[in-house]
């Protein structure tokens, strides 16, 4: 059953609704973007996703309902075991009514993702543009670069209304991350540019930071490589960094 109209869409329901149909035996890797919603229904049903080592059509795992041709994707139910939703998306909108699996919005360039539940690790990894909002909590590695890559988030905005795990905005080069709750360790490690705001408490902040700004509302631990200034800290001195860590006013 399709749900209430999406906020901001004037009550017109034109979208693709998906719901898990089975209890997954292993997790699903579904590299789906809102563009799929604009495709013919048959094509949508046959769209292939990875189910362990099998490639299966979407309809084998999900109930799908299509209403209109707009690029809006609504995921209903528990998607916590579905990964890579919104990977590299450029436009359109994804609304997740429950929890979402890892890598949601990775490499995202534009458009909007709303998660009404919790998100797993790698939310908005290496994101370049667009917007992600999570009502619940997120796992680790928010907006981080994948292993070995030199640049993290480059643009766009991520808002998490709950808490976030460890590693946030590593090697960040632009864009904004806001965590309304608490965060874990290693915020803005090797950050080069952009802005991170943590409203609650967090652990280590700013290790090897070269630039950018971090604002924190609660308690935190700045690494012992920052110089105290009138309104916060500047560092990391070990990389001749000019990053700023300040208390959130």
């Amino acid at each position: 059953m399709a749900s209430k109209p999406v906020a901001g869409y004037g009550g017109v329901i034109i979208l693709l609704v998906m719901k898990p149909r089975v209890d997954f035996e292993v997790n699903v890797e579904a590299e789906i973007t809102p563009e799929l919603a604009a495709k013919p229904f048959e094509e949508i049903k046959q769209f292939k996703v990875y189910y362990g080592n099998r490639l299966v059509p979407l309809e084998e795992l999900f109930e799908i309902e299509k209403k209109g041709d707009d690029e809006i994707l609504i995921l209903e139910g528990d998607f916590s075991r579905v990964k890579w939703i919104g990977k590299s998306m450029e436009k359109g909108e994804v609304v997740i009514k429950g929890d979402i699996g890892a890598h949601c919005g990775a490499f995202m360039k534009g458009g909007k993702i709303t998660v009404e539940g919790n998100a797993d690790d790698w939310l908005g990894a290496e994101m370049e543009g667009g917007e992600i909002a999570v009502r619940g909590n997120t796992g680790n590695l928010v907006a981080c670069p994948y292993w070995g890559n030199l640049k993290g988030m480059k643009g766009g905005r991520i808002t998490v209304y709950g808490n976030a795990g460890n590693y946030i905005g590593e090697k960040m080069c632009g864009g904004e991350i806001e965590i309304r709750g608490d965060a874990g360790d290693f915020v803005g490690t090797e950050m080069k540019d952009g802005k991170i705001t943590i409203h609650g408490n967090c652990g280590y902040v700013g290790g090897d930071m070269k630039g950018g700004e971090i604002f924190i509302g609660g308690s935190f631990e700045v690494v012992p490589a920052f110089i105290k200034t009138d309104d916060g800290f500047i560092g990391d001195v070990n990389v001749k960094g000019k990053g700023k860590v300040k208390a959130l006013k």
């Binding site: 012992p224 490589a225 001195v237 070990n238």
Partner: peptide, 23 residues
């Protein structure tokens, strides 16, 4: 440990001023 490594780096790099009284 993480903080202590940073503190040692700061000291060796000539930035004792970035190291608090105790780490």
């Amino acid at each position: 440990d993480y903080a202590i490594f940073s503190a040692l780096r700061s000291i060796i790099n000539g930035h004792e001023d970035a190291v608090p009284d105790e780490v």
